[in-house]
Amino acid sequence: MRNPFVPIPMTVERNRVETVDGGIRTLTLSFPADADRGAFDFVPGQFAELSILGVGEAPFGIASSPAEGGLLDFTISRVGRVTTALHHLEPGESVGLRGPLGNGYPMSELEGGDLLLAGGGFGFSTLRALARFVLKQSNRSRFGDITVVFGARSPGLLLYRDDLEEWGERRDVRLAVTVDRGDGSWTGLTGTVPDALRRLDIDAGRTTALVCGPPAMIRHTIPVLAGLGVAPERTHVSLEMKMKCGIGKCGRCSIGGRYVCTDGPVFRLADLENLPGEFR
């Protein structure tokens, strides 16, 4: 059996700055070994641990869709030692990866219905993976109406500008981008993600909501979704939490009897409501 603590060596292909303050970057990684690439089978919503030996390891949602030719995107906000080191990686350099980890979004449940993707800040990364997956031409027909709501604190902190631009031009996706505070040049929505959701007109009966963002955003989004009529059974929340091992051993991501790293990070709201009110 494979030692679950040994990372797969990955090669940095690209290192892009996402936000104007340089605080968030997206790394694109490739598999130097074909065997590793072949074995890496994931669904949107799953995450992986990226590491630099001697510096540390941290979990990140996979920001790219499974259908992207063996390249993986990870969006990283610089907050500490590990993320600073990851930010400093240059193309061609090596980084360790353990994954895919976690359960991911319930893809089979999503097919056939409408989707509402609501994400805030850099928690949007796995929703971006999901959006790219469902909007891929070959997959699009398997899903109904698709609505994407993305919020950031300010226009400069918006991520994935290319994607947003593309989705904004597409007819088969409804996109709402909102910022907490605009600047002089911002002409889009202002307000929080729940604010933007309130204005939506959706067919709640057909819709499955997928939510990912910081705890405060999730806290405020859940009642709004309920107000829209989206059932807790059809609401899936991806939790951001502190994880270490990623394999259900180290104990820190326990919520009630669940481990976020193995039982999540995506939880059905109906299940989450039976869990202790931590991490919400």
Partner: peptide, 23 residues
């Protein structure tokens, strides 16, 4: 059984270890 995973580097040797941690 809770543990933490730490990385340390001394004298050029980079080490990842797990250590007891406490809730």
């Amino acid at each position: 059984h809770c543990f933490d995973v730490i990385d340390e580097e001394t004298a050029g040797v980079r080490v990842r270890s797990r250590i007891w941690d406490s809730c």
